[in-house]
Nucleic acid binder design. Structure first.
Ligand code: FES
Ligand code: FES
Lengths: 145, 145
DNA sequence: TTATTAAAAGACATCCTTGTCTCTTAAGAT
DNA sequence: ATCTTAAGAGACAAGGATGTCTTTTAATAA
């Protein structure tokens, strides 16, 4: 349901957003060190985010990554779909192919309601929403142990 | 969140339960053919279920698998823990190690409520509960396409 | 006891996610 | 124009879940 990639993506985006006033561009090295995330793997995740238009990047001297006009309004479901995780919402929980309410598996009716709520949450929740709870230790809560 | 193993386990148990009146022991070959599930892989899943005491098995002539006194009261969370899936409920969604409400990650408060409900569902739902909706096409809804 | 049967156990192979490294490309500094 | 810098692209390895096959163990039939 939730991959490492998803966590890395969210945390990196929030890091960029929180650091925006300090520096407008931040390098991969800084992000991976500050968040304690594997450098080269993160590069690929970031690249996907840039290709999706969720972040901006500039190569070369004083280059790096930055948020853009779209970033804060990006919904979490969009980030989940980067790694194909959003498809969980349409897959049968028992892995019987595509979930089908008109031909429900034995567990379908029991999980459907909660799954819909879960899906609705990620369809509505945005990066900006996550930032609203910005307290003193917000940045620290992005960092892996 | 939901593995193939989980689906195979639930479907096999339900198959055994539905077939109980017809035959008291069912062989792996029949289950894998009827449910359209990989034979040898299913063997391992079934073995885990037997070791957990969720199913019974007998080797040799006229051997096979069968449900026991405990089977119908087994909670789905027990089956999830066979493949370590139940740990999802205690892991941080952003994969920041162990989820900790007193030191919440930026997404924690937004998902916690739903995650608790989800967990509560699987802690209460039993195999027997799944069988209550037994309609005409129940058996067919166990079979992969 | 011996043969047959079917689960249990163990060795691999495959696929996907994650992680690491090197080379290439492009942007700015000189 | 040339050098330096940092992202992008591609190759490759590690790990776990899944899938396949063979050998071993144990139960019943004969
Ligand atoms: S058909 Fe299985 S969860 Fe919907
Ligand atoms: S701390 Fe991240 S989900 Fe609870």
């Amino acid at each position: 349901m939730f991959s490492k990639s998803f966590g890395y993506a969210i945390r990196s985006i929030l890091y960029l957003a929180l650091m925006e006033e300090e520096k407008d561009k931040i390098q991969l090295d800084e992000i991976s060190e500050e968040l304690n995330v594997p450098r080269y793997f993160l590069a690929k995740v970031m690249n996907k985010l840039v290709k999706e238009g969720i972040l901006d990047s500039v190569k070369g001297h004083n280059g790096g990554f930055s948020i853009n006009e779209k970033t804060l309004s990006v919904k979490l479901i969009s980030i989940m779909s980067l790694t194909g995780e959003s498809s969980q919402f349409s897959k049968c929980v028992l892995q019987l192919g595509k979930c089908n309410a008109s031909y429900p598996c034995p567990i379908h009716d029991r999980v459907e309601l909660l799954r819909r709520e879960w899906q609705a949450l990620f369809k509505s929740l945005t990066i900006g929403d996550l930032l609203k709870k910005n307290e003193n230790n917000f940045m620290k809560s992005l960092i892996a142990i």
